[in-house]
Design a protein around this nucleic acid. Structure first.
Lengths: 368, 368
DNA sequence: GGACGATTCTGAAACGTTTCAATCCGATGC
DNA sequence: GCATCGGATTGAAACGTTTCAGAATCGTCC
């Protein structure tokens, strides 16, 4: 990202055609506050005031300056403003996978709240890679970003450490953190895993597969742990739950996992996926192989993205309040940013998930 | 969005606690190139060269300066660089709906190509609203963005006009434009519409609904026109094709359209949707109402997003090369940006769509 | 021994804002 | 007629870079 040194070599010896200066800076963009000041016969300070503190300027001057701004097509330079202010008016947002509608929804909620507060948002995709995450954080630092909303891909707390080191306000999204360490908004993954597993156990399943990789991601780990605790609470042995790891959390990984699942014997009667993308991919493989859902294998997803309800077999899923998650995180960040004098108290907010039962896990009679 | 005037009132009378200056600027971020220069006993110019033109600096100095940078945690200020350079190192990207996996895929392709070229990307969502689009373009202008990739929401060419007026390099994405006017990369929507409609007509359907709103959007208009031309080419009357407009192009609009469709009599035997989101929403309604697909109603979507294949009934769809679209647009923009001296020739590229037949439109015997 | 080149470094200008102390001016109060 | 006040405006500093003309140093060649 923004690799330093890509520019210089190519632009070393350019003719640099000086643009004609006869007209007052014709190629818009090049019109500065000085040109406006000159055009209106006032000082630059006054022009600045017209823009930022109109009530300080007499009506007559204000109108005159506004007219010149219009005429010259003046657009103020955000970089100059930033330089002066010492920080930008942007918030960086870093999610694990923008192609996952769950995160798209989270981002949408956050963006809406932040824009309402006059802050721009730069949404970036770490692709669950600590290296890409670090690159983006470096980019944010160069931009003197105002704050960061991040779902960390880095599993050792280096991300949090680095942000705290820089003094950048941040809020963890979809990941919990001790309140002393910083703000966080998450959804109770332990509970979600428990809900989903208990539902399958209730339906009589005694061989359940948990499909979901990267147990270094707390989301996956907690959902699995929740499922395990449901098994234990129901008085079953640990081996009722089989863990099938995947390296990514997308549809393609779900398809692969489906193939592996079909090779298992004895074959599980139910599958619990770490997210809906995996479940949808798995469903494709099962469908293609002629395996019936839920008759042969019951399926439960996680996130309840919009496409879960429209799936080949409408998908039972653990719904997470994605929009609320984003909005809440944004509010927390805004609180920290604006309350600059007041000693901001970090908060740890944990939202609750909800099981949405659909066809893919319709109740069955225990068969084995 | 970055509303001017939100800041000033709240920060008018703040105590502004001057940070301790004993340590060399402890709260990172505040370390400037001057601090590094002082720390290393060189001039600021030399520090700048260490960073940007290392080959110009003696090894000894380079190492010394690098060490100081490390020690002080210096991070260069992008806004200062921008101010000096006159433009940012960012490209703005504006799509109609980021929640639509099709655009997510386009954005991903573009981002990848641009990052490889050392440019950052700011992806924004106009929500198909000309007003929001204009706001974002204004934001881009203030940021002195290097170039813009845009799928215009504004249907009169105002967007293009405004960009050309600013002199900002741009490429239209998923929308065609005469090569004299600027670069564009699109997919042949006329052809796509024809493919889809011909497929349904071949299967014997004689009452086909086209579901898709906002015919002011060329994508929708062309797909509809393509469908109409297929009807004409097959020698049928115009009224074989019924147009059912929707105001948005998302899953919820598809659900609504489904309800309206069910109220029609005679009921169409096939539906062609302007995109997959509509088709998936429609499918949900049909499924809930017990209408069988494709037996009672055949369904064809558009875009072939990943979720189409995993739908309740795997969806026949017109595949568009989303990733390629984004990548190609990025390449065109890069060509225009880098070839600053060379007279850049605008190009109009039209990619071809492809019909992917799945269960939702399985062949049937003509019944009426 | 002086001229010249190459290499390395310096110092200052410039980028376009915002902010703030200082100035100006007309009106008000005495 | 003078001091004072308040509102409107000015002018310059500062923000943190990059760039570039020039200075310093050293070696080489005539």
């Amino acid at each position: 990202m923004i690799t330093p040194g890509t520019g210089p070599p190519t632009m070393a010896s350019m003719p640099r055609s000086t643009p004609k200066r006869d007209e007052p800076a014709r190629s818009a963009g090049r019109v500065g506050i000085k040109d406006v000041a000159r055009g209106a016969g006032v000082s630059v300070g006054t022009v600045s005031n017209v823009i930022n503190n109109p009530e300080m300027v007499s009506e007559e001057t204000r109108l005159r300056v506004r007219a010149v701004i219009e005429r010259l097509g003046y657009v103020r330079s955000e970089s100059a403003r930033q330089l002066r202010a010492g920080h930008s008016r942007m918030v960086g947002m870093l999610v694990l996978d923008l192609a996952n509608p769950f995160f798209a929804e989270v981002a949408k909620g956050a963006e809406h709240a932040l824009r309402a507060a006059g802050l721009g948002v730069m949404v970036c995709n770490s692709a669950a890679s600590p290296a890409e995450e670090a690159e983006y954080l470096a980019l944010f630092a160069e931009q003197r970003i105002r704050g960061v909303l991040v779902t960390p891909a880095d599993t050792g707390g280096r991300t949090v450490e680095s942000l705290r080191g820089q003094g950048t306000p941040f809020v963890l999204v979809d990941r919990s953190l001790a309140a002393e360490e910083g703000c966080s908004v998450s959804v109770d993954d332990l509970r979600g895993g428990t809900l989903a597993a208990a539902h399958l156990l209730d339906a009589g399943h005694r061989r359940v597969a948990f499909v979901g990789g990267r147990t270094d991601l707390p989301q996956v780990r907690d959902r699995l742990a929740g499922a395990r605790s449901a098994v234990a609470a129901a008085g079953f042995a640990d081996d009722v739950l089989l863990h099938l790891a995947t390296d990514r959390l997308d549809v393609a990984a779900g398809r692969d996992a489906g193939a592996r699942l079909l090779g298992l014997s004895p074959r599980p009667t139910a599958v619990l996926c770490a997210n809906d993308l995996l479940a949808l991919g798995l469903l494709q493989t099962l469908y293609a192989a002629g395996v019936r859902v839920p008759e042969d294998i019951a399926l439960v997803g996680y996130d309840d993205i919009e496409f879960a309800a429209a799936a080949a077999v409408p998908l039972t899923s653990v719904r997470q309040p994605a929009g609320l998650l984003g909005r809440t995180a944004a509010d927390l960040l805004l609180d920290e940013i604006t309350a600059e004098g007041v000693p901001h108290a970090h908060r740890r907010i944990v939202l609750q998930p909800e099981l949405v039962v659909r066809d893919s896990s319709a109740a069955r009679v225990p068969s084995s």
